[in-house]
């Protein structure tokens, strides 16, 4: 099992709430590949601050509604 980052997220949940947006569509909207979206959703990659903001703005929520520190 690959190690995970300490930052967890609700990207998959928000993506599904927004008209079942696909990983490829989300990747295209924020400027990353589908594989990177998959890695973010599986907590294998913490996106840059810029991408994190892009994701939050795309879903119309705050940054902390998408990402949080896993204690």
């Amino acid at each position: 099992m690959p190690p995970k980052t300490p930052i967890v997220n609700r990207v998959r949940e928000l993506r599904e709430q927004h008209g079942a947006m696909t990983q490829a569509q989300l990747g295209e909207a924020i400027g990353v590949t589908r594989q990177t979206v998959i890695a973010i959703e599986q907590n294998r990659y913490s996106p840059s601050l810029e991408s994190a903001f892009r994701i939050a703005r795309l879903f119309g929520v705050g940054l902390e509604d998408v990402f949080s520190w896993d204690d």
Binding site: G31, V32, T33, Q35, T36, A39, Y45, P47, S48, S51
Partner: peptide, 11 residues
């Protein structure tokens, strides 16, 4: 499509 995609931040 993948082959033409630009390198992203993770890559």
């Amino acid at each position: 499509k993948d082959a033409h995609a630009a390198v992203d931040e993770r890559e």
